[in-house]
Design a protein around this nucleic acid. Sequence first.
DNA 1: GTTTAATTTAAACGAGTGTTTTAATTGAAA
DNA 2: TTTCAATTAAAACACTCGTTTAAATTAAAC
Lengths: 218, 218
Amino acid sequence: MGHGMASRTDTKTRILDAAEKLFAERGFSETSLRLITSKAEVNLASVNYHFGSKKELIRAVLARYLDVFMPSAAAEIQRLFKNPELANLNEIFSSLIKPLLELNQVRHGGTTIFLQLLGRGYIESQGHLRWFITTHYGQYLEAFVRAVSASAPHIPPAEMFWRLHFTLGTIVFTMASADALNEIAAADYGEHNDTEAIIRKVIPYMAAGVSVPILAKE
Amino acid sequence: MGHGMASRTDTKTRILDAAEKLFAERGFSETSLRLITSKAEVNLASVNYHFGSKKELIRAVLARYLDVFMPSAAAEIQRLFKNPELANLNEIFSSLIKPLLELNQVRHGGTTIFLQLLGRGYIESQGHLRWFITTHYGQYLEAFVRAVSASAPHIPPAEMFWRLHFTLGTIVFTMASADALNEIAAADYGEHNDTEAIIRKVIPYMAAGVSVPILAKE
DNA sequence: GTTTAATTTAAACGAGTGTTTTAATTGAAA
DNA sequence: TTTCAATTAAAACACTCGTTTAAATTAAAC
């Protein structure tokens, strides 16, 4: 029963740390277990020993971020609605900035990595990560959707569903190519934006899109 | 020199038709040449014989659509600006609908396939497809950027750069996951949207985001 | 009808994948 | 110190992948 607790945790963490970086950079299926374990300086078989399979490793990588982000984000939303006057969309989206940037304290570059992982998870892996997220964190997602819907009551639920996924695509694609975009922006416009600056640029864009009135058909 | 022209063209077309469908559905790296050639009912080696490599097959699949879409889209933009009064953003984005839907006449389901391919191309394949598109079709892209900038003169170039990439992310992510989103929308809201319906939903979102005034910092 | 180049075919190649197995090592409990 | 389960390690397994090779087939040119 008693055994080397320290070394086991260490190996698991080394794997998770190496995996999340590589997954975010190159995607899940493009990242082999051999590359992960060599970067982590652990044995190849240790992934299957500690996590069971590659698929479960992917889930563990995502869960480590979601377990921090989701409750924090939910608390921010709740705090916002304690206020008597209704929050507007910009405020709701902006309330996610703090939980997102806190991920940088959890791990270096955590904010960018998390958003990139989220994007990869939704695009790759036909549905099984989407299912994992909605079943494990559905309560948080629903609370967020309710908050947004209350702030834009003129948008019907079905339309809001689509617009929130447009929003997901906007943020996820932007963060996935943030490094490349930043290089171009620096070269062409002399701009140097960190992750927070980009988030603050994208929020007005998303808020405007989500709340734009639906045009009557001609 | 003279040789079986009919059979060669037929084989190449069979490969392209099978490949574009599978690439759009499952992504490039998740689609094996063996799956493509079995669906196309041609020999495995014929891909390397006719296209050289899998990477060049991917480019050929995309080029077959871009060669139709890009000139058509450019013509629409140009036609829009022949009109004395300035076009608004909704009109500019909407002018791409016709060129997009024309792809359905080229091939069954062509519009969806093209947009999904575009999304896969920008997300997968780290940069080499992005490079292929900008170097081969850059003139068309620049004309489009000029048209959008003229319609939103209150947005400085650097900000417009970011917002157009937000827009790219929105459309690309949406189309890459269009099938999955449509399934959810059908189950949860009883909605059944075709590609045109989704395009018409996303355009107001993007137009509002691109043109939203920049807030003075507090 | 013969020649000749284009095309198709079947088979193999070499490298890479996730996973499993079996043995060695570790370190706290007895 | 012995015991024994947890962990690490090295190797092999059973695939799949894109690509190449070499022979067979096709059909147009002469």
